[in-house]
Simulated scan of single mutants.
Amino acid sequence: MLADYKTNYVKKYASQASSYIEEAKRCPGSNGDASRIIESTFPPVFRPVAEHDFGFNVQYGDTKPGSALVSHGFARTAPEVSKRGPDAIEYLVFSDGPMKELPARTPHGNWRLRLDTSPDFAAPFVKALKRQGLPTYLSAFDVDIERSPRASALPKNPPLPEELSRLVASRLEDEGFEEMSDETLEKHTGKTRKEMNEAIFKEIAFGARNFFNGRTLQFRILMKDSGLPCTQGGRGAVGAYLFTFEGQKDVQVNFGSVSASVLGFGSCASSANHSREYVRNLAEESKQVILNDLQGR
C-alpha cells in the first residue's frame, strides 16, 4: 500500500491528500494550518528507529505557528527493528508547545536562501567534546541555496557548495589557519576521509537519513593553534569545520547547502579574553564571503 501510494501519488492520491488537508484545517481547535509531513517535520521521537513515508500535520491553538501539533502518518522501521518486529508502523503523535519553524527563504540576488545561525545542528558535536572534558565555544551558520525560478539557469557541476567552501577555506588560510590534509586527518583521527564521512552519516538518526540519500557530503577541517593570546603555551586552539551538501539531483533549482562551525577549544573557549569575539567575527566573515560571492552569480 505504501509503495502504491508513493508510485501513483499524482494519478491516484494527490486529490485525496488535498481533500484530507482541507478537512483537517477545519478540525475544532485547529489554527487552520495543516500540511503533509516531510523529512524535517517527521516526529523526532521516531527518528532513531523509523523512516518517514507519508503523513499529515495539523497545528492547534490561536496562533501561527500553533501551540500544539498532531501528526498522523506511516513510517518504515529501521533494520534493527524490522528483524524482530514490524516492517512499518502507523503513528499518531501529539506535541504540546510552540511549533518551531524553519527560517524563511529570503531573496538574495538571483537566489532564494535559507540562512540558519542557530547552533542546534552542531549541538551534538559540541556536547560530545564537552563530555571528553574539552571546553568548547561555538559560532555556526548554515546556508541552504536555491536558484530563483525567474533567474537564468546555471549548471550544477561543479557543485556550487564546494566552490563556496573553497572560498571560505582560502579566507581562513589568510587568517593563519591550516587545512588538514587527508594524511593529517588520518593521523589524528585514525580514520580516512571516506571512513570519517561514513562515521558522520552513521551518527545521523535513521529517520533523518532520507534527507541525505543521494546527496554527497564533503567536509574540511582547518585549525589555528598559534598567533592568538588564547593559544599561547598550547593552552587553546581555534578550529573551523566546513560541511557541504550538493544539491538534489532531481530538483533543478536546489543547489545544496554550506555549513560552517567555528569553534574555540580550551583557553580559546573562555570568556576571560577576546577569543569568543574572535570566533563570532570569523563565523560572520565566513558567512559574508558566501553571500558576497552569490550576489555576483
Rank of each mutant, 00 (worst) to 15 (best):
4 D>N: 15
5 Y>C: 15
5 Y>I: 13
6 K>Q: 13
13 Y>D: 09
16 Q>P: 06
19 S>H: 06
23 E>R: 10
41 T>Y: 14
42 F>G: 00
44 P>W: 08
47 R>T: 02
51 E>A: 14
51 E>P: 11
51 E>W: 15
53 D>C: 03
54 F>K: 05
56 F>T: 00
64 K>I: 14
71 S>M: 05
73 G>L: 03
75 A>Y: 00
76 R>T: 13
76 R>A: 12
81 V>Y: 12
84 R>V: 13
94 F>V: 10
96 D>Y: 07
99 M>S: 06
102 L>H: 13
118 S>F: 08
120 D>M: 11
125 F>S: 08
126 V>N: 02
129 L>K: 14
134 L>Y: 14
134 L>F: 12
134 L>M: 13
136 T>W: 13
142 D>Y: 04
142 D>V: 03
143 V>N: 02
143 V>R: 00
146 E>C: 01
150 R>A: 00
168 V>H: 09
176 G>D: 12
179 E>Q: 05
180 M>P: 04
185 L>M: 02
190 G>E: 10
192 T>I: 02
192 T>V: 04
201 F>A: 15
207 G>V: 01
207 G>L: 01
208 A>Y: 01
209 R>M: 09
211 F>H: 15
215 R>P: 01
217 L>E: 08
218 Q>W: 12
218 Q>G: 05
219 F>S: 08
220 R>D: 04
220 R>A: 04
231 T>F: 09
231 T>A: 09
231 T>P: 05
231 T>V: 08
231 T>L: 12
240 A>K: 13
245 F>V: 10
246 E>W: 04
248 Q>D: 10
252 Q>S: 14
255 F>D: 00
257 S>D: 06
264 G>Q: 08
269 A>D: 13
270 S>K: 09
270 S>I: 13
274 H>T: 05
277 E>G: 10
278 Y>S: 04
279 V>N: 04
281 N>V: 07
282 L>G: 04
284 E>Y: 09
285 E>S: 12
289 V>G: 07
291 L>S: 12
294 L>G: 08
